[in-house]
Amino acid sequence: MNTYLVPESLAVSDSGFLFLASTGETFTLNEIGKDIFKMLQGGDTREAIEQKILELYDVERATFVRDFDDFINQLSSFKLIRTK
């Protein structure tokens, strides 16, 4: 099972604005990015997130799995999450 760690100093606004207090960096998430990020913060596993997104959005599993990996890579490269 895959879960992720989100830094505590991170705040997300409803519009998808991210503020990393420890470094002062800011980011924007698109709508779906924000949905996923909230799930990550809530401690959802990868499998749970996949499930929820497929219910919410009109997308094939294969497409989403690939995009999710890329999203996780982006977040890790900005040090916004760590894989547990």
Binding site: F27, I32, I36
Partner: peptide, 12 residues
């Protein structure tokens, strides 16, 4: 269902 697009994060 909502229209899908790839999740992205952009650094300012």
């Amino acid at each position: 269902k909502k229209t899908y697009e790839r999740p992205v994060v952009t650094k300012h």
